[in-house]
């Protein structure tokens, strides 16, 4: 249920939505391996699916714990979808882009 694997869309069935309307905050912890992986994966997802146009902010919870507190970021890495205005959290190093794409209902 939490993994949401069954609901992930298949490639080739997606219709494009304006990439500039995508705004994401990635919460990381320092240069912890999963955080580094998440950064890399997010850059790659942005390049591959959003033509590099999604707005991405990176917050290091080790530097700013209040941001983590405000957004209930208990685990890292963790991605907050700000736009479209879902306020959804996707946790993990984003090794599977489909979770993010399904969450924002992104269609190519």
């Amino acid at each position: 249920m939490r993994k949401g694997k069954d609901t992930s869309p298949k490639k080739g069935q997606r219709n494009p939505i304006p990439e500039k309307e995508i705004e994401l905050i990635l919460f990381v912890a320092d240069d912890e391996p999963n955080s580094l992986k998440a950064k890399e994966n997010l850059v790659e997802i942005n390049r591959h699916y959003f033509k590099g146009k999604a707005k991405i902010r990176i917050v290091d919870v080790m530097e700013d714990f209040r941001k983590a507190l405000e957004n209930d970021v208990l685990v890292t890495p963790c991605l907050l979808v700000v736009q479209p205005p879902l306020r959804s959290l996707i946790i993990g190093n984003l090794s599977d882009p489909n979770q993010l794409l399904a969450t924002i209902k992104f269609k190519e």
Binding site: R2, V61, V75, T76, S88, I90, G92
Partner: peptide, 17 residues
């Protein structure tokens, strides 16, 4: 409860807080 999981993670967020 509807949180989505994509890949590995740990409790650093909680530790930071």
């Amino acid at each position: 409860p509807k949180v989505t999981i994509s890949g590995d993670f740990d409790l650093k967020g909680l530790l930071a807080i």
